[in-house]
Design a protein around this nucleic acid. Structure first.
Length: 512
RNA sequence: GAUCUCGUAGCUCAGUCGGUAGAGCACUUGACUUUUAAUCAAGGAGUCAUGGGUUCGAGUCCCAUCGAGAUCACCA
């Protein structure tokens, strides 16, 4: 144990000796919050120059002590509660209750109270000489003693931060410390919650039903990815953590729910980097009797709502670095082929597979001979177009080979009715007119099986029960999936997925 | 999975050519009844990520391991 930890344990023992309970059980009634009081405290100056305090004259706050400034027989503290910080002012005579021999001020407050301790205070609001709204404390109570020292982050009047707690490893492993000493990061998670809430309200208002579907699945369908595998003891069977929930949501459409949505944790056993965490959150929703054109309209409406909800002034734009992204629709709609034509000059419709392969080699895109024309098109798009799509853009009409769950295009042979939404050069949504022809779906699954036999670990598994469901009849349906983490990154200007997850996955810690 | 960079006090960081481990904040003791990055005086605090190697001598050079970050590959 470090010196400071030992000292805090000694303080704890001394508190108990003095009859102070460092961890009281009873509730503490809070009647005021730092941010409210700082924002709303009022006083009037009378004709004789004296001040008349108008509100918060009997208030109880609770929070952590984040700084102390001793001034002889007085003491200032910064108290941090869930809303922010406020200064406390304590005077010896009051804390001691008039008893000269009381240990409360000199021992309990000045010596045994440490930074990071939770306390409750009762008193009245006032404004100090220097103009800071503060609480004049008349009663104070230990609520919880901290046995480890917090990193001390200081901030001056201009807002400059000193000794910031910045080590990403420490911040992510000890998010509780990060959230305590870096209140700015709290805003990211508050915005995330608001984003989810805005979407939920939007979808509820559309008349969709929020549902839950299995996370433990006997067949990992609905996406191309490697799953986590687990085992159920009683059933003695292999189960997979879901990589997608799409096939379950469509079963509910078959069952007669015309619109369903789910905020769903997905699990993919793949690499981790600043845009990938092994578990992440997707929003998927499916609406009967609609198609992908309708879904594009709805996406525009939904994202504009989100942008306005998160913007302090209700605006529809988001600033990402030096780029201003406009979320009010309509968004540009560009076919994949037109996009490639525009950014590379290649007409992929007329180009042969060999010509595309030759182009890839020329511009140093890695290719191998197993790649068919569709895969080459996808590579060229990813390499040459994707990063250029800054303003929200629907990329539409994909080759059928890449989209085993998507309905064949109503007029363009070889393509499917699919779109992906790109913003700031990154994909944020993937949607299609759902394939509801059970015979076509079976053939697409069989194509996937052939890919799996050739060693494609991410090929989609054939789900007989899902096909049985389609054979009972699924209405024409539009569906979409959003990456909620990435959407949050976009709306909060974060470069790393770890900044929008409270507890990003880390390698196990050796010595805690 | 590959490459590069990093790991020194509770936090943020210095540490030269290989020669006794440093600073600010935090902490301890003292002063101070409106301070606010409080101030002033004094003091304590380190398995230099871990393990090996080279050397008279390693925080520093070499190797391995662990952890993190960035870039790339794959994916959402």
């Amino acid at each position: 144990m470090t010196e400071q930890e030992l000292l805090r344990r000694e303080s704890l023992a001394k508190l108990k000796e003095l009859g102070v309970d460092p961890y009281p059980a009873e509730m503490y009634e809070v009647t005021g919050y730092a941010a409210d009081i700082v924002a709303n405290y009022q006083e009037e100056v009378l004709e004789d120059g004296t001040k008349n305090r108008l509100n918060y004259q009997q208030v109880a706050l609770a929070g952590r002590v984040m700084a102390t400034r001793e001034a002889g027989k007085a003491l200032f503290m910064n108290l941090q509660d869930t809303t922010g910080r406020i200064q406390l002012y304590l005077r010896k005579e009051e804390i001691n209750g008039g008893d000269e021999n009381s240990p409360m001020f000199d021992t309990v407050v000045k010596k045994l109270l440490d930074l990071g301790d939770y306390i409750g205070v009762k008193g009245f609001a006032f404004r100090t000489k220097t103009g800071e709204v503060s609480i004049h404390v008349q009663e104070f109570k230990f609520l919880s003693k901290a046995l480890r020292p917090l990193p001390i982050v200081k901030r001056d009047a201009e807002g400059n931060i000193y000794d910031a707690f910045t080590d990403p490893e420490a911040r992510y492993r000890m998010r509780y410390v990060d959230l305590t000493v870096n209140p700015d990061f709290r805003q990211i998670f508050i915005k995330r919650a608001k984003l989810v809430k805005t979407i939920r309200t939007f979808l509820d208002d559309l008349g969709l039903l929020e549902v839950e579907t299995p996370i433990l699945q006997p067949i990992h369908g609905g996406a191309a990815a490697r799953p986590f595998t687990t085992h159920h003891n009683t059933l003695d069977t292999t189960l997979y953590m879901r990589i997608a929930n799409e096939l379950y949501l469509k079963r509910l459409i078959v069952g007669g729910f015309d619109g369903v949505y789910e905020f769903a944790k997905m699990f993919r056993n793949e690499g981790m980097d600043r845009t990938h965490n092994p578990e992440f959150t997707a929003l998927e929703f499916y609406v009967a009797y609609k198609d992908y054109n309708w879904m594009m309209d709805i996406t525009e409406q939904m994202l504009e709502k989100v942008a306005r909800a998160l913007d302090p002034d209700g605006g529809s734009t988001v600033q990402v670095g030096d780029r201003t992204i406009e979320f009010a629709g309509p968004y540009r709609r560009l076919t994949m082929f037109d996009a490639i034509q525009e950014y590379t000059g290649i007409n992929v419709e007329t180009a042969s597979e060999d010509e595309l392969r030759a182009y890839c080699k020329k511009v140093h895109i890695e290719v191998d001979n197993s790649m068919g024309k569709a895969k080459l098109i996808d590579e060229i798009f990813g390499e040459k177009v994707e990063a250029s799509l800054i303003q929200p853009t629907f990329l539409i009409d994909y080759p059928v080979e890449m989209s085993p769950l998507t309905k064949i295009h109503r007029s363009k042979p070889g393509l499917v009715e699919r779109f992906e939404l790109f913003v700031n050069g990154k994909e944020v949504a993937n949607a299609y007119t759902e394939l509801n022809d059970p015979i076509d779906q079976r053939e697409r699954f069989e194509d996937q099986l052939r890919l799996a036999e050739r060693g494609d670990e991410e090929a989609m598994a054939l789900d007989e029960d899902f096909l049985r469901a389609l054979e009972y009849g699924m209405p024409p349906t539009a569906g979409i999936g959003f990456g909620i983490d990435r959407l949050t990154m976009l709306f909060t200007g974060q470069q790393s997925i770890q900044e929008v997850l409270f507890f990003p996955q880390m390698r196990p810690e050796k010595n805690v």
